[in-house]
Design a protein around this nucleic acid. Structure first.
Length: 319
DNA sequence: AAAACATGCAGAA
DNA sequence: TCTGCCTGTTTTG
């Protein structure tokens, strides 16, 4: 159940611990057996996240990176993974610290051995005392293994092999991702996409062709932080307000990538912020708080369906 | 033990 | 708007 920050962290994990190595690729579960055979024994040359898509690039041969017209040219095959609602990567073995502010992996410093991290539904440290590499547990669709690190994929909604051209097409259709492109043009593209449509802004924020990476939690929290009613039609959202949504998404995304935690409350003092990093119940202002008092005005938080998903909002603060 | 639920999305109707 | 799919965890009976 990842939103964009999670997928960027996964891409970074691949960059740090898998890229540059020859990978043994298998499908313990069997459902990706053909694809695994194609990739097995080839070098991993790149990993990128675009919104909620993860792309892992495999080269035909080791080393010898050719001068490339774009980032997708460096690989001859790309593994595209989308985690959907249930997907997760379990990492075992050598796991380099992802960021200086990382709280999810535990202590900083040298790469750790025999440490496992599940990245997907939140992030947690798994006990891993057995031999390396560990036997696959449960339904492992794909295992990408190097000498020192094992990445197990489970429950993805998409797992397929693409050519560079197919990746380019997919990426061109995706909405802007502020972690990849923080330019004024990307911001403008988002603002215009919102204001071009009558659809509720709450729905547009989760539309991956409007903006990449936002899911149900960030959606609810971004709109609360902007004090904006999710049911406001996109075309009536002032350009300045839409711009603020983009800027705030960029901030929350970077923070989520750094810490591995979706901490979206603006009202926390530093001490409470530290506590919230380890206590999920303290992280959100409206998400998952139906019936409980709004942290800003004490009115009961409302939950209602929007396009089949649960939408949380404060009926008093958000207009 | 069974059911409900979850940070998602594609495809059909 | 609805259904189906993917897997694991939590809640209910």
């Amino acid at each position: 159940m990842p939103e964009g920050h999670t997928v960027h962290r996964i891409a970074r994990r691949f960059e740090l611990d898998v890229v540059g190595e020859v990978a043994r690729v298998t499908s313990p579960q069997g459902r990706f057996a053909d694809g695994a055979r194609v990739l097995d024994g080839r070098p991993v040359v790149a990993a990128h996240a675009v919104g909620k898509h993860l792309f892992v690039g495999f080269g035909p041969t080791e080393g010898a990176a050719q001068p490339a017209p774009d980032r997708w040219s460096v690989a001859s095959s790309w593994l595209r993974v989308h985690l959907g609602l249930y997907g997760a990567w379990d990492f075992h073995g050598r796991l380099s610290p992802l960021t200086p502010g990382d709280v999810a992996v535990g202590s900083m410093g040298a790469p750790r051995l025999r440490r496992s991290v599940r990245v997907g539904e939140g992030e947690s440290t798994l006990a891993d005392d057995g031999p390396f590499p560990p036997d696959p547990v449960g339904q492992v669709r794909v295992r990408v293994a190097t000498e020192q690190t094992v990445a197990d994929l489970r429950g993805p909604s998409a797992c397929e092999l693409l050519t560079a051209d197919e990746v380019r097409l997919l990426v061109a259709r995706a909405g802007p991702d502020p972690h990849l492109d923080g330019s004024a043009a990307a911001r403008r593209r988002f603002v215009e996409a919102v204001r071009a449509r009558r659809v509720a802004v709450g729905q547009l924020l989760m539309d991956q062709s409007v903006v990449s990476g936002i899911g149900n939690i960030y959606r609810a929290e971004l709109l609360f932080r902007a004090e904006l009613d999710p049911w406001t039609p996109g075309r009536t959202v002032p350009a300045e307000v839409a711009g603020t949504l983009w800027d705030d998404w960029a901030v929350l995304l970077e923070d989520g990538i750094t810490t591995g935690v979706m901490l979206t409350r603006a009202d926390l003092a530093e001490g409470d912020r530290v506590r919230a990093l380890t206590d999920p119940s303290l992280r959100h202002a409206v998400y998952g708080r139906a019936g409980r008092p709004c942290l800003r005005c004490a009115a009961p938080v409302v939950v209602e369906p929007m396009a089949g998903r649960k939408l949380y909002r404060c009926p008093a603060c958000q207009r």
